[in-house]
Structure formats: C-alpha cells, structure tokens
Design a protein around this nucleic acid. Structure first.
Length: 815
RNA sequence: GCCGAAGUGGCGGAACUGGUAGACGCGCUGGACUCAAAAUCCAGUGGGGCCACGCCCCGUGCGGGUUCGAUCCCCGCCUUCGGCACCA
C-alpha cells in the first residue's frame, strides 16, 4: 500500500489553496451586509526573526476555529500581517547587520513562507505590514485626529530611559525597573516627550469591561491593577511661610486627625522654594539630588530603610489647625497623586516606619470600639473601626467618618472627594530610527503645526546612520528635517522622534477589514460589519500593553464617530507558553525548537495536531520529543483506513449500526468541545478513538458500509487540525473540496442509547455494573441492582437504610 | 505583603452540572510478522494484598468538614507559577 508521505500531499494542497485563493473572503456587497459572519484574529507577529513554536500554537488554534466556523456556514474573516516597525525589528536588524527595512522584508518573506508551509487558512488579500507607507500613512492620520482632540500632547516630564536601547519607554514597557525588551535597568530623565492622554479614559477602560463577552479573569484583573483606581479625597494643606496651598491625595480622609507630619517627593517643585535661604537648604537640596540619581530599582527596594530630611518648614492641617513638620523623602513619588502626602503613621505602615526611624509622633485616630488604646502604635485597618480623638467626628464608623470629613472640607473649600489612578499617560515618542514618523512640524513663527492630511504620509527618510545614539537618527536627514510651514510658508523643521510600535498595532485589526482602501483608513460601514473581533487569540504577555492600548484607541475612534463600537475584542483567549527541556524556549538557553525542522521530519499536519494535543491550550506545557510520534502514527492509521475504503469503492452506508452511532457521538463531542467549550485537545482524542474502533473492524466485509461512514466522518472531523491529509483522503474517497464541505451534524436519534451501564454502589463504593435497558423505573433499577451477586455479598444480612437512584447512571444502597 | 491560577500514574493529560478516577497519547512489558531490523498489528500497564484467572484494601498536594456519594463544594495549611508592589 502507498505510504503516507506528508510532504508530497502538503505541498500539493498548499498549491491548490494558493491558486484558488481558497481562503480569501471578500467584503460583503451592498446586499450582503446582513450575512452571518465572524472575525477570528490572532495577534500579528513581529518580523524580528522566523516563527517559533508559540506562533505555531497561536495560529493553529485560530486556524482550527476559522475552519470549523467557515464550514458552519459563516463568512469568516481571518487575516494576517506583520508588526514590522519598532524595537523588535530594528534590534534584529542591528544584530544581523543590515538596514532595518531590508532585514524586516527578509524576515517577512521567511515568515510568509512558513505560514504557507503550515497550511494555515489565511486571507492573503488583506495582508498588512505596519512599516509600509500605505499603512503608516493612516497611523499618522489617526495621530493627527488624536492631536486635534488634545489627546496627543507634548510635555516635559520625568520619563523612563533605557540606556541600552537609547530611547524612552512607556511605563507599561518597564518591568521591575527594567526595560521590557533588553532587561537593562531604566534611568529617570526629565525630557520633553509626546504622550497620549489615556488617563482620560481610565474610568471607561474599567467600566466598559462589562461590554466584553469573554475575557480571562486574570487579564481583567491585571488591567484593573494597572489602572489602579483609588477613591479618596484631595485635602489642601497650607504653608503660611510661602503663602501657598499644597493639595495631597488620600484614600483615608477619616484619619486626617492623625496626620503628624507631611512629606514632599524630592522632585516636588516647591522643595527649593521652601528651603531657600534657610539653614536646611544645603542638606535638603543635596538629598533631592541624590534621590534623583538613584534608579527606580534602588528607590523601590523594600529591604531598604526609609530615608528623608526635615525642611524646617511646617504646614497647617485644615481640620485642626495643627502645624506639622514638612519632610522630604523618596518614598513619596512625584508621579502619583500630587507628589505630597499627609503622613498618618498610626494607620499607614510606610508612614509608621518613617516615624519610628525619625522619632516622629504617632497618633491613633481610628480603632475598633473596645480596643484599649495604646498610643504610639500602628493600628491595622479593621472592619468595625470607629473614629477616636477626632473632634466632632469622634465615634463615627470609619466609612461614615470619611464622608463626613470630606463634606466638612468641601463646605469650607479645603478639599474635595477625588479619585486617583496608577495609570499614567502613554509615552509614545521614541528616539529610534525604525518607526512611524510623528507628523508634526515646528515653525519658527507659528510654533507646533500638524502636517496637513493631504501631505501624508510623512515618509521615513533614508539615513546612513540609523544606530541608536540617544537622539533620533532622523535628525541626521537634514533635507528631510527642513520643511516649509503649511500655515505661514516660513521655515520649519520636522519632529524627528518616531512612534512606539504599540501605536502601529493599536488599530491593525481595523485596517484588515478594508486593507486596500487608499482614500481612508477604513470605511466605517465595512469596519462596523466585521468588528468587533469575535475571537482574539494571543499570548498573555500583552495582557496590559497591547490589549489596553487597543481598547483605548477604539474608544477614542468611537468618540470621533469613526467606529460604531467601543470594545475591539469581544472574546479573548490567552494561550499558554511552550516549554522545552524544562524551560521557556530561548536562544540563550539553546533550547529552541525549530518549526521548520519538525515539519521536515513529521509534516505540518503532525505538528499542528501535536501542538494542540499536548494539553489545554491556555496552559503552559512542556514539549516532549516523542509525543509527536503518536500523532504521526495516528495520521498513518487514518491514511491506511481511508485508502482501503477508497480502494473498496462506493458502498451503501447503513442508516444505523454501532459504528455509525460511534461516529455521530464523535461529531457531537468534537463540535461541542471546539465551539462551546473552546477545548482543542479532547476533540483529537475523540477522533483517535473513532479511528481505533473503526480500524479493529475494517476487514469485516459485512461492515464495509459502516467503516466507510466512520472513515469519512473521521476525515471530515480532523480536517481543521490536519487539512492536508484530510483533503487528500477526501479526494481519494471520490469527493472534493472538504474545506467547503458543511460541518457534519450529529443525528440526535443516533446519540440515544437503548441500554446503559448501571453502576451499583454500596455505601458509595462501586461494587458492580450491569447493562440495563434505558427507561426502567427506579424500583426496577433497584431490583436489578439487588440481584447482582457482588452486590448481595455486601448487602445480605444487613439492613438497607437508604436507596439512591440517579436515573440513567447509578444506584447507591446504604446499609 | 496584596491579588489571581494551579497541584491527578513513570510522563503529557481526561473526567463538561457533586455520580464508574486515570479517556487519549507517550513511555514501558510481552507476543505476532521478519533471516534480522524498521514499520505495522495484538495484548498488558496507578499502588498494595490475597484462599491469585477474581476479589479486597489504598489512591486526585496535606489536615478537617458537608453529603448516600467529593478530583469537583466549604474551612485551614503546604507547594508551584503568574500579576502588582513605598500608588498614600
């Protein structure tokens, strides 16, 4: 018999699919706008190298889903593109040596070939690359719309600087004080940079989570933590000496009477003023300078003892007119709240630690009712606490106390209820070459001027030296930098920073809908037809970064009237990572598996099957070298089964029979697992079982019809996983175009059973099983159970105290 | 420290709504075919015990609880992984 040779079959069908543009899905025409459709999207790859096993898993998952949904009769959008601008691609170019464009194009070509070789059913007519002028023209266009709304702005602020990548980073790109991409310790620098006002959308990013259909709870939690909304109050403290008011943010206005000192962040702008000409000036400024020089990691070290200096100045607590000393300490962060705090050591662990170190008073103002007050100690938060020693508020429960004190402050103009967020505005400018130019001009007389829409795209200039050097390499392109002001016609120069790559990827899923449109980024009608994405699939590493940014973009674009929906991704699935030899795969560890090698050895179908068979798709899993052998063996079995059925020729398929019923059970199981449970490993096991059972009776001539039906069903069900082999067998079985064949339907009548195995327990322990007809009454089932000898051995001579019958399943006798 | 997820054979995992624990695959053992090997096919495979071809006991991280019945629900621990972390 002809051997199963994956490579021959796979190349053949890949050619067919490409020739026929088999998976291209045109946009609906005017009369088709109500057609049933779905958008299956996987996160697009960075072309910073070739595809790795994580991509293989990601895109195979999406592929299975897209195949099944298409065969269910839906119009399925399943596009692909490349996140080609940005640090990953540029660093790859520097590593490999070569111009970023050349290296990126080479990587894209390699990835495209790998995708083709995996047999993924992609609509290649919508392919998009974010570094292509036809794409980034619209990234710039969107930027200008944000700019017009005041949502893109420039300001000087302390920012994160990566000394290795020689650029600033967004907060989201700093992990434990280190650069997300290269691991270098980031530095603080005061620089003028471009920001997106994502903080304006903080509440909507939280509240509109309710519009999502299905996101993993841990991703929502991560986003909530990242946004970090806290409710409290802003309270104004007065510095008489400077005739100035300093607001602080607190979540505990109920502890206001317990404020015994006050702390400013070292970077607080009032610090120099406060100490000018005083004996404390030198010491305080010196402390502020040293704090500025410390890295974020050093400053946040929880082991470190708290440091600080007294300024010699005092503020007045608005609730009791008490004057409390002002300190400067680096445990107060300039970026959060107002950069100043009221310190309540009795009710805040950090303030308590500081108070002990510098021998400052500790005053308890909130405590459980019967607590014996011990002054000078830390009193942790408790459920039933009430205010003590707090003038007219004494005795109120803490929650009521908060409200009452805030009201009192508001009525006197000394404070107000306030909300604070951990989220910062998104720093989007980068001092790197390989990115989307920011379409802004600086005119000597008009100031900052946006590039008019009709002048887009602002093309990325060619430069000789694109290596990072701390300021944008674009500045070296002098001809490009020099421009004419579109307003006054005078001299102007271009913004030379480029955009963060996450800007590019915040709207690519919209462009896919209308990828060839050169008059607009998309047609709203088309975008509203396909979007929001019904199923998004990708790695959990983007839980905050990309997924938060894309949600923000869609909300803004919705406000601008450019989109008719507010959330981009209704359902999100985060796949687990693939480990190899006990660790995450990485080049430095030398434990990288190459998809190409695996395809060469086993064929794409076996790789596709095994990557999903290994375990639940959301779990991290360990790749086992021998595991894939099982998939190759299974496909070999199915191959022989199919060929033998094909050779036997057409036979009548009986309407019923044990194997026919098994096949229908498999249809039900596979469909339910994929479509309802989103579980991709167990369907494979179900088809393997069907094939094994069929294999055992394949040579029985009396059952040829059943065997044929079971074999065809197995081929059809495994098509989303192993499309090449399935297509080949389908053709040899005298059929064609399995990828367009309607998804099989299980006949409910054939899923019904005439008998079932009744489990009989005594005291909850299984003692016997017996095959009985479906539909017996409870007393009949009990009677059957009690007849069984093994049951009698445990029951005879004892009194049956209770009888439990679970219809269709089991009987439990309690003695 | 706070928040979240997970712990099941030699291994990856299955058990969907509280109802047969270990589906399916890997590995391993024995057998068939073969001069031999590969491939393929068949059978077995959680641990222990015995009056051993059938039955008994134990068994889903640990200790309790609820229930006729718990991998599943509740309480308390342990371990691992992930996120946040001087955020006032």
């Amino acid at each position: 018999m002809e051997r199963y040779e994956p490579e021959t079959i796979e190349l053949k069908w890949q050619d067919v699919w490409e020739r026929e543009r088999a998976f291209s899905v045109p946009n609906p025409g005017p009369g088709e706008m109500d057609e049933r459709h779905t958008y299956v999207l996987e996160m697009l790859p960075y072309p910073s190298g070739e595809l790795h096993m994580g991509h293989v898993k990601n895109y195979t998952l999406g592929d299975v889903l897209a195949h099944v949904r298409r065969r269910m009769g839906l119009r399925v959008l399943r596009p692909m593109g490349y996140d080609a601008f940005g640090l990953p691609a540029e660093n790859a170019a520097i590593r490999e040596g070569g111009h970023p464009r050349a290296v990126t194009e080479r990587n894209i070509a390699a990835i495209r070939e790998q995708m083709r070789r995996m047999g993924w059913a992609i609509d290649w007519d919508r392919e998009v690359s974010t570094s292509d002028p036809s794409y980034y023209r619209w990234t710039q266009w969107i930027f200008l719309r944000f700019y017009e709304q005041g949502l893109a702005y420039r300001k000087e602020a302390p920012v994160n600087w990566c000394p290795n990548d020689q650029t600033v980073l967004a907060n989201e790109q700093v992990i434990d004080g280190r650069c997300e991409r290269c691991g270098a310790e980031v530095e603080r620098r005061n620089l003028e940079q471009w920001f997106f006002r994502i903080t304006d959308y903080a509440d909507r990013l939280l509240d509109e989570m309710s519009l999502l259909e299905s996101w993993p709870e841990h991703v929502l939690t991560m986003q909530r933590n990242w946004i970090g909304r806290s409710e409290g109050a802003e309270v104004v403290f007065r510095i008489e000496e400077l005739d100035a008011d300093i607001p602080v943010f607190t979540t505990r206005p109920d502890t206001l009477f317990g404020a015994t000192f006050f702390v400013l962040a070292p970077e607080h702008p009032l610090v120099p003023e406060l100490v000018r000409g005083t004996p404390h000036e030198e010491e305080v400024l010196d402390y502020a300078r040293r704090a500025a020089g410390r890295s974020a990691i050093e400053r946040a070290d929880p082991e470190k003892e708290k440091t600080g200096v007294f300024t010699g100045a005092f503020v007045t607590n608005p609730v009791n007119e008490q004057r409390i000393p002002i300190w400067v300490a680096d445990y107060v962060l300039m970026e959060y709240g107002t950069g100043a705090i009221m310190a309540v050591p009795a009710h805040d662990e950090r303030d308590f630690e500081f108070a002990r170190r510098f021998e400052l008073p500790v005053k308890v103002v909130v405590a459980p009712p019967d607590d014996e007050l011990e002054e000078g100690t830390y009193v942790p938060h408790s459920e039933d606490e009430r205010l003590v020693d707090s003038a007219q508020f004494t005795g109120l429960p803490a929650e009521e106390g908060k409200r009452a004190i805030v009201e009192w402050l508001e009525s006197r103009g000394l404070g107000k209820a306030a909300v604070s967020y951990r989220l910062r505005d998104w720093l989007l400018s980068r001092q790197r070459y390989w990115g989307c130019p920011i379409p802004i001009l600086y005119c000597d007389s008009c100031g900052m001027v946006p590039v008019p829409d009709e002048d887009l795209p602002v093309l990325l200039p060619e430069v000789d030296e694109y290596l990072p050097k701390g300021r944008s390499p674009l500045a070296a392109a002098e001809d490009w930098v020099h421009a004419t002001c579109p307003r006054c016609g005078g001299e102007a120069h271009r913004e030379t920073d480029t955009m963060d790559t996450f800007v590019d990827s915040s709207w690519y899923f919209i462009r896919y809908c209308d990828a060839k449109n050169d008059g607009a980024p998309w047609s709203r009608e088309i975008a509203d037809y396909w979007l929001p994405v019904n199923q998004y699939i990708g790695g959990v590493e983007h839980a905050i970064l990309h997924l938060l940014y894309a949600r923000f973009f869609v909300k803004v674009l919705n406000d601008l009237g450019l989109l008719g929906f507010r959330e981009p991704f209704l359902r999100l699935f985060t796949q687990g990572m693939i480990h190899y030899l006990g660790a995450k795969m990485s080049k430095s560890k030398g434990n990288v598996l190459s998809p190409d090698d695996l395809i060469a050895t086993y064929g794409a179908d076996s790789v596709r099957l095994y990557i999903l068979y290994m375990g639940p798709a959301e779990d991290d899993i360990e790749w086992q070298d021998t595991g894939i052998d099982g998939m190759a063996r299974f496909l070999g079995r199915l191959w022989r089964l199919g060929l033998e059925a094909a050779e036997r020729g057409p036979v009548d398929v009986p309407a019923d029979g044990p194997l026919v019923r098994r096949a229908h059970a498999a249809i039900a199981k596979v469909s339910d697992d994929i479509l309802r449970r989103f579980q991709f490993n167990t369907p494979i096991a179900a088809v393997i079982e069907l094939v094994n059972e069929t294999y055992h009776v394949k040579d029985d001539p009396a059952r040829a019809g059943e065997v044929r039906f079971a074999a065809e069903t197995a081929v059809s069900l495994i098509q989303p996983y192993a499309p090449h082999l399935s297509e080949e067998l389908w053709e040899r079985l005298g059929r064609e175009r399995l990828w367009e064949e309607p998804w099989p339907q299980a006949d409910p009548a054939l899923l019904e059973r005439e008998t079932f195995e009744l489990v009989v327990q005594v005291n909850g322990k299984v003692r016997d099983r017996v095959e009985v007809p479906v539909g017996l009454s409870d007393p009949e089932l009990l009677a059957r159970a009690k007849e069984l000898p093994r049951v009698r051995a445990h029951v005879d001579g004892k009194e049956i105290r209770k009888e439990i019958v679970v219809p269709g399943k089991l009987v439990n006798l309690v003695v």
